[in-house]
Amino acid sequence: MNQQKNRVELLHKNYIHSLKIERWRVRFYQAVIFIVFFSSWELSSQKQWIDPLIFSSPSKIWHLFLNKIQDGSLLTHTGVTMTETIVGFILGTLLGTILAAVLWWSPLLQKILDPYLVILNAMPKVALGPILIVALSPGYPSIIAMGAIISIIITTIVVYTSFKEVDPNYVKVLRTFGASRFQCFKEAILPASFPTIISTLKVNVGLSWVGVIVGEFLVSSRGLGYMIIYGFQVFNFTLVFLSLLVIAVIATIMYQLVELLEKKLIKE
């Protein structure tokens, strides 16, 4: 009996050990890819295998990074773009969800608006950029609007579909208690759709970055999008790469934060 127990414990230990080894192996190869990529970039740039004027090099980017940190300009630009993106994607998700709720509330309105939603969804939203700039004046409002508008319609469609797919028996349970339509929405439809709303939040983080960067290309005098367009105009590609790397890092962090929120909100 005791012997058998020891054996099971041993096997369990081995299993945990094998899991650990696998995790380390994954981490190791991830690091290898990272190091190989940046060192070969650096090397080929220094040996002039690639044009250093166009492709720059990690060391140059790093020096520029330190410079821009010291004079504070990088932080300002990053702060501006981040604010615009966060406001944009929260607005986009919120308005999209509200619109989905309105459509759920009134099936007639849903039928009437259906073709318009399809058209708006098919349309490339960045093409609206110039109109937004003229309508809302160049600056924060039009850039935030770009970040939001790019995700509103797709959020509406996805969230509305999930509202409709909630098991009707949950609503039946509520109706037997004499619940109003609003109570049905609040107690069953909305909470049952939280997982979908969170996953659109994840998609919208990415979409809003597109909207905001394009918006900054068009109008801004600040922000990471502006840094890219400015670097391009003065042929300073080190600046362009720096902005790209900063965007990559921050977009990843924001995505991870949304995932953290997902774990917190969804208990199941």
Binding site: D167, N169, Y170, K172, V173, E187, A188, P191, A192, F194, I266, K267, E268
Partner: peptide, 10 residues
């Protein structure tokens, strides 16, 4: 009472 419990999972 329905065929399944339909307790709200959240």
């Amino acid at each position: 009472m329905l065929q399944q419990d339909y307790l709200f999972p959240w």
